[in-house]
Simulated scan of single mutants.
Amino acid sequence: MNDAPNPGPGFETGCISHTGKVRKANEDNFLLRPEIGLWAVADGMGGHENGALASATVVAALEAVEAAGSAPDLLAMLEGSVLKANAELRAEIDRRGATMGATLVCLLIHRRHFACLWSGDSRVYLIRGGRIVQVSRDHTEVQDMVDRGLLTPEEAKRSPRRHVITHAIGAHETPELDLENGEIADGDAFLLCSDGLTEHVVESEILAAVEAGGAQAACDALLALTLERGARDNVTVVVVRYRQGASERTRWMPNRPERGSSTP
């Protein structure tokens, strides 16, 4: 288990990563760099040795990102690092003759601007004003089928193919990242996680944990809940809360359904 809170200027950060109750090794990796406004979670694929290498390769590439003078510069550095990681993984795949890759979810914050980027089914949520919204959209076969009206969300959760991923770093010659961006407001909290959390925990429980206390306490509580329910996969959770002590307006409105604390 890795427990690494890091507050950073203007942010309260909590993080926890655990192998779970079934897997023999932890293929997840994470990055906390609040001093430059970067947080990330990567979930490896391809067997425990190859998966761990894949997620570590992605996180190591992100370590090269430096403090930026603008939000576009920060985004450009991150995208360059992802391209580098993808090239390294493609070369390793050719060398080993093995399938490997990593999902990735990143949070970038520069002044009052945020950007969420992802590839795969690791997720990022925004908790704002007592409500939660999933910012990311899973890159999976079943999510594509839900979007096309071929499956209901309930059917997708039960599908044996719910973990078949359509995008991942290293999976293709050119990585595909989706992006959502906007402005943050005082009290906003972001939660980044691997799918080991969302396999067992629903959005209303994530909301309750984040609203109940500090960022690290939320991570601890969500891991405990996951372990209680069997933790069939590695689980990594990062919570980032923005605190400036000022009343702020934001121009970003989620384009996906929100849920309040009373939602089951």
Rank of each mutant, 00 (worst) to 15 (best):
S136L: 05
G101C: 08
L126G: 05
L62Q: 01
A115D: 14
V58A: 09
R131P: 00
D73S: 13
A115T: 15
D94V: 07
E49I: 14
G80D: 01
V135Y: 04
A87D: 09
G51C: 10
V105D: 00
G44N: 14
A85S: 08
T99W: 03
L117Y: 03
G101K: 11
G69R: 14
E66R: 15
T140W: 01
G120N: 08
E49A: 09
L104A: 07
D121P: 01
G47I: 12
A42M: 13
A76Y: 02
S122Q: 02
A68R: 04
W118F: 09
R112S: 07
A115W: 15
G130R: 03
N50K: 12
S136C: 08
R96F: 04
I127F: 01
G97W: 11
R95D: 05
V58G: 04
E49L: 12
S55T: 11
S55Y: 02
G97F: 11
V65C: 06
R96Y: 05
E88R: 10
A68H: 05
A67N: 11
E92N: 09
L62D: 06
G47V: 13
L53I: 14
G47H: 10
G80S: 08
G80Q: 08
C106W: 01
F114N: 12
A71T: 09
L107V: 07
A60W: 01
G51W: 06
V58R: 04
S122M: 11
I132Y: 02
L89D: 09
I132K: 01
L126P: 04
D43N: 07
A56K: 08
V135K: 03
A102K: 13
I93K: 12
V133K: 02
G97V: 12
V135M: 13
Q134R: 15
L126D: 03
L117K: 12
W118A: 06
Y125K: 03
E88V: 05
S122N: 03
L75K: 14
A71M: 15
A54E: 08
S70Q: 11
E63D: 14
Q134T: 04
G129F: 00
T57V: 15
R131Y: 06
I127D: 00
G101M: 04
R95K: 10
V133I: 05
G101E: 07
Q134N: 04
M100V: 14
H139R: 10
A85E: 07
D94E: 15
A42V: 14
C106A: 10
L107T: 01
S81F: 06
D94K: 13
A52L: 03
A61K: 03
E141Y: 03
A67M: 10
A60P: 02
V135N: 00
L89F: 11
G47S: 13
A42N: 11
A98V: 13
R112H: 12
